[in-house]
Write a protein that binds this DNA or RNA. Structure first.
Lengths: 230, 230
DNA sequence: ACCTGAACACCGTTCAAGT
DNA sequence: ACCTGAACACCGTTCAAGT
């Protein structure tokens, strides 16, 4: 298991010309990895990890049930490709401000936002191979931290601390988002157990959280500690 | 979805006497939720989330394939019970030192260690219901933070920041642990792409990480920020 | 009350075959 | 080169039936 889709990929690339014979009006365009990945993401967004089924994906592509297996080795590869596709980073906004702190915060908030747009993605990321897009993000993060003055020996630790925080925050947020009703129900039930859990009942831990604010706050505390000077 | 296994549970509890008719030497003891959960944890530890199958679980219990369904609604409940069972907290060591910082660090490191002993558990936790054991941990964490001087209005944010960090660190660590070879292979491949990823190649991001040290360091930075005074 | 096997619906994947 | 349906192995769960 590892970064797939690199240049060593032996998957076929369709040449621009020579569209396949049947191209009548209204018929679907031919299959391609791009279409497969795009449709897989649609399906995942709509129905979650459990909703991605090879037959259903083929159906939605207007293809025969088993056609996918010519383009893709197996379902795992679909996951890998969909995941990395969702993690593309378009770079910092506007002009370089040369403000490393703002840059890092932007990078990490953008990363989190990208994953929250596809709530299945964050849970998947730690379990799957590191694709080129996530590697680029890590590279950029590492370079910026280094420029900001983090010692070479501390760089690994700093990158992983931030990774851990972003991943944890996003996975938690994404899952709570999916089950707001459940959390409300759970908080209800907590009320009946207030002798056992008085504190988290009192502060209504399971409700009304300012996730975005809490995320940025914790992130700033981490950066205060991880990056010297400033 | 919510905290299950509470006192409102309508699952049968076997009365101490009246062992079922067949209890010949060498035969398995009768089924019980306790045995089911314990064996499920064994299976999960040995084979990961994908290795838990209802038939296999029944087999290992020496029971007929479908006997489990009398004790348990479905597979999800097995997951919920196994997960919370693994999260029991036995409290701080020795005498109360009244040192909140040490107490919190101990609680969170113990939490992480409990999950690392069962590498499937961390990934599961954010997706599943909050059982009594994890709720107790959150309650204790909240109470300690409160005693340490965190304002009532900041308590939610502080608890979730720590949750996020612990969850992210543990999920990442558990998964990298499972695939050390993969990471080595990935780092190898990175070497070939050092023009694209020079920084993370140079610091060997995917290798030789001091996970435990990095965890404690980041945790301390978070606590520095989250808890006033000190 | 507790356990069981047969059966169903479903899913990922292989394969031999089509064009 | 690209697509296809039939078939296989497997899995969660229901159900009617046993004791």
């Amino acid at each position: 298991m590892a970064a797939k889709g690199g240049p060593q990929d032996k998957r076929p690339r369709r040449r621009a010309g020579s569209l396949s014979s049947m191209q009548q009006a209204g018929s679907e365009p031919a299959l391609s990895i791009e279409r497969i990945v795009a449709t897989a993401i649609e399906l995942l967004d709509a129905e979650g990890v459990g909703g991605l089924k090879m037959r259903r994906l083929a159906d939605r592509l207007g293809a025969g049930a088993m056609s996918l297996y010519w383009h893709v080795d197996n379902k795992e590869e679909v996951f890998d490709l969909a995941l990395d596709s969702v993690l593309e980073y378009r770079g910092p906004p506007q002009i370089e401000a040369a403000d490393w702190r703002a840059e890092i915060v932007h990078m990490l908030e953008d990363w989190r936002a990208s994953m929250l747009r596809h709530p299945w993605s964050a849970s998947l990321l730690p379990r799957r191979a590191l694709g080129p897009n996530i590697l680029s993000r890590l590279e950029l993060l590492g370079r910026t931290l280094s420029e900001a003055g983090v010692a070479e020996a501390d760089l690994n630790g700093a990158i992983w601390s931030l990774w851990n925080y972003v991943i944890g925050a996003t996975i938690t947020r994404a899952n709570f988002d999916l089950s707001d009703d459940d959390m409300a129900a759970a908080q209800q039930r907590l009320a009946h157990l207030s002798e056992k859990y008085p504190t988290i009942e009192r502060v209504r831990l399971l409700l009304d959280n300012d996730w975005d604010g809490a995320f940025r706050k914790g992130l700033n505390f981490l950066l205060d500690g991880l990056v010297p000077g400033q």
